[in-house]
Amino acid sequence: MRDDDLVTLIAVFVPFSLLSIGGGSAIIAGIQHESVAVHGWISSREFIDLFAISRAAPGPGTMLATLIGWKVAGWWGALAASLALFLPSSLLCYGVIKVSNAHKAKRWHKAMREGLAPVGVGLVIAGVISIFRLSGGGLVAAAIAVASAAILTWMPRFPTLGILVLGAATTSALYSLGD
């Protein structure tokens, strides 16, 4: 581990933290450019692999930064990159909700929460549409998603992990049958 590696990791990821408006997908291209072309930490091929791993792993997709830090400088690199990516945006978020909650009793605050709720729901629907298109899963994807939602609607106590296992079992079975 070299100290200047850690400093560079922090210097690269802190700005990305504050630029990642709308979530992690906004900064993937930028992270790729910095870590492959500018700093030469990893090859293009390695970047794609790390991206795929960060998607397959549980947790937010931006854990990609953790993996890059790990490749560059081991455990300390992973820690430095993670803190650099998550801490600045988290502090900003906390500040914003503190300011807005200071007016919790006011009528406009209630109207704001009520008015933002349908916007949030619309954004989730938009997210479902884009993930569905990106997945290229077609009818199988739609059927599994609808079935999962139906199970949770009619059996609210059904374990969430069980839903994921059923999904994996279905596509695995289809894959084996297709062989």
Binding site: S135, A145, G167, T171, S172
Partner: peptide, 18 residues
């Protein structure tokens, strides 16, 4: 193949919010 199925089921979790 298995991780695709997990991702499709996770879409279902989002559908519940919708």
């Amino acid at each position: 193949a298995a991780s695709n199925g997990v991702a499709y089921a996770a879409l279902g979790l989002l559908l519940v919010i919708c």
